[in-house]
């Protein structure tokens, strides 16, 4: 067993399935896309695969390119086949992939790295560290404004904007995944609290909890002028 295996949420087909920190809260979420279309819908995305990569700036940039991500400026996430590449600092990035895909992601990093053995020191599965909630719909941005001071106006936070900062008084990260879709990442221990905050704000704006499959697709182009 690898020394850091105990930090991994997911261990492949043979190990027990990981349990989302929001498993209890989301039990009743509906899959109707109405909320995401008309007001705001929110879904648990906590099991999204997350890898933390730490390396000297030039090596990290090389890794990014090898994984097929375009170079992204500070404050912008790059979208690729593997998911989102989120540069947090010149020497630290977060790679967000599909749920349960961290093993595959790590293998991808290993392959891209070319210096086998080094990657273990650079890559850490942080899937369990962060819980995540995705908000989508015409009132998603307004909902977030009820508990978050980040400036997410479309002109200031275009699609793919990456905004680490305080979310509902927690350290957090916001990724604008599409015109009307925002991913909120925060510490896993805050999951219940964050869900309560989002539900409190969203319900007042007429929204509802939804299942992940009710969310609009990432980066879906949308007609201009749809902002609330």
């Amino acid at each position: 067993m690898s020394t850091l295996a105990f930090l991994r949420a997911d261990h492949g087909a043979t190990a027990p399935l990981p349990r989302s920190p929001l498993a209890a809260e989301t039990a009743a979420a509906g899959s109707s896309p109405a909320a995401c279309r008309d007001t705001v819908g929110w879904a648990d995305s906590s099991l999204l695969g997350k890898l933390e990569l730490q390396a000297p700036a030039d090596e990290l940039a090389g890794l990014r390119a090898a994984l097929g991500f375009e170079q992204a400026a500070a404050g912008v996430a790059a979208r690729g086949d593997a998911g989102w590449w989120c540069p947090l600092t010149p020497t630290r990035a977060l790679l967000l992939g599909a749920a349960g895909a961290t093993g595959a992601l790590a293998a991808l990093v290993d392959g891209a790295d070319g210096t086998a053995g080094q990657s273990a020191a650079r890559v850490l599965d942080v899937t369990a560290q962060f819980a995540a909630i995705t908000l989508a719909g015409p009132l998603a941005r307004e909902t977030i404004a009820r508990f978050c001071a980040l400036d997410l106006r479309p002109a200031h936070a275009p699609v793919a904007a990456l905004r680490p900062g305080s979310v509902a008084r927690m350290p957090g990260i916001v990724v604008r995944e599409a015109e009307e879709r925002y991913l909120l990442l925060f510490g896993a221990a805050y999951a219940s609290y964050a869900w309560e905050v989002v539900a409190d704000a969203g319900a007042r704006l007429g929204g509802a909890a939804v299942s992940e499959d009710a969310l609009p697709p990432i980066n879906a182009p949308k007609e201009v002028g749809s902002h609330a």
Binding site: R19, F147, A189, S192, Y193, D200
Partner: peptide, 14 residues
């Protein structure tokens, strides 16, 4: 503020 306190809970809270 809204009456929701920023609480951390362990994965075993339930």
């Amino acid at each position: 503020g809204r009456p929701i306190e920023a609480a951390k809970r362990s994965a075993l809270h339930a």
